[in-house]
């Protein structure tokens, strides 16, 4: 085998770096969406690889639902500071107060309310492009997504009318008010993400590793017991050794029972897993097309 040869992580890396540099070169006001989750942690390393020794030429953006795991927000703030980046946080809480996001009667989840909050932030900062960490292997509506995903002036995705994407030639052209979402990790799988975290020795929030936590069984999932998720009658608290596989809101993220307390163990666990990553996300289970509907409305 020749030396001029890339293994799968190197191939995915060079593809993602190319995409990020296209964003920096083609857009006026891009932003990088950083939540502190494992996918966006990889995005930050790729941004360093794409742009160093210069500064990463775009601010970081996070929509804070107010229902985040506290460990995640701490990590997010610390990592952004380490990289010397400007971190812009827009809160669903504030969007509700300003009337930008309006909860339905009895709506507890902040998932849907992230959409108007994000769109308002895009308008406020006149972002023409947002880089996100979504992957096509996560969900079947995402399997149809382009690297450069065009959104009209209402922030909508039209899956039936996407721009053809050929070779590595990305059409980044927009008219005023339109927006691009760009997904450098499109071709990465959950396994690739963890293998990259291992190869690059990236720090991740502690909730990805197994720890003791008070949980309650609901809709076939172990949900963390917090002030936001009080017990219902007949429910009981179980103290379990768990970790998260994917992070959403603290009220809808299922904890998985696991003893994996380091990256190697996590990779072994995923390789043997019989359930997908998003199998533990209640927000995707609400209907067969839950993700498609949210994406059409302007979701990440």
């Amino acid at each position: 085998m020749s030396n001029y040869y890339l293994d799968h992580l190197q191939y995915l890396e060079t593809e993602a770096i190319h995409v990020m540099r296209e964003v920096a070169a083609e857009f006026e006001r891009p932003a990088l969406m950083f939540s502190g989750g494992k996918d966006s942690i990889c995005l930050l390393r790729l941004a360093e690889k794409a742009f160093r020794p210069s500064d990463i030429p775009m601010p970081f953006l996070n929509v804070d639902t107010g229902h985040h795991f506290p460990e995640l927000n701490d990590f997010r703030d610390r990592r952004a500071a380490q990289l010397g980046a400007r971190l812009i946080i827009r809160k669903v809480e504030d969007a509700i107060r300003q009337g930008i996001a309006v909860p339905a009667p009895g709506e507890v989840s902040r998932n849907r309310l992230q959409i108007p909050t994000l769109l308002a932030a895009i308008e406020e900062f006149r972002f023409d492009c947002c880089i996100g960490g979504a992957r096509r292997d996560e969900e079947k509506a995402r399997a149809k997504e382009r690297f450069f995903s065009f959104r009209d002036s209402f922030g909508q995705w039209d899956p039936k009318n996407q721009r053809p994407e050929i070779w590595n030639l990305y059409n980044a052209r927009l008219n005023p008010g339109e927006n691009m979402r760009v997904f450098p990790l499109s071709n990465w799988t959950e396994q690739d993400v963890w293998e990259y975290i291992r190869r690059e020795q990236l720090e991740v929030p502690t909730i990805y590793f197994s720890h003791r936590r008070k949980c309650v069984r609901r809709h076939g999932q172990w949900l963390p017991v917090t002030d936001l998720l009080p017990l219902k009658p007949n429910e009981e608290i179980h103290e379990l050794v768990v970790r998260v596989r994917t992070i959403g809101d603290i009220i809808s993220t299922g904890m998985v029972e696991s003893r994996a307390d380091n990256v190697d163990d996590i990779i072994t666990e995923i390789a043997a897993a019989r359930v997908t990553e998003r199998g533990s996300r209640a927000d995707d289970k609400s209907s067969e097309a839950a993700m498609e509907d949210r994406k059409k409305a302007g979701y990440f």
């Binding site: 292997d137 079947k140 399997a143 149809k144």
Partner: peptide, 24 residues
């Protein structure tokens, strides 16, 4: 139904756009 992820695809039993799948 594994690859035809969009609602219209399942309803009409057709594939609308390029879908990407991953396995190892």
């Amino acid at each position: 139904n594994l690859t035809d992820g969009l609602r219209a695809e399942r309803e009409q039993g057709i594939t609308i756009d390029v879908a990407y799948r991953y396995f190892a």
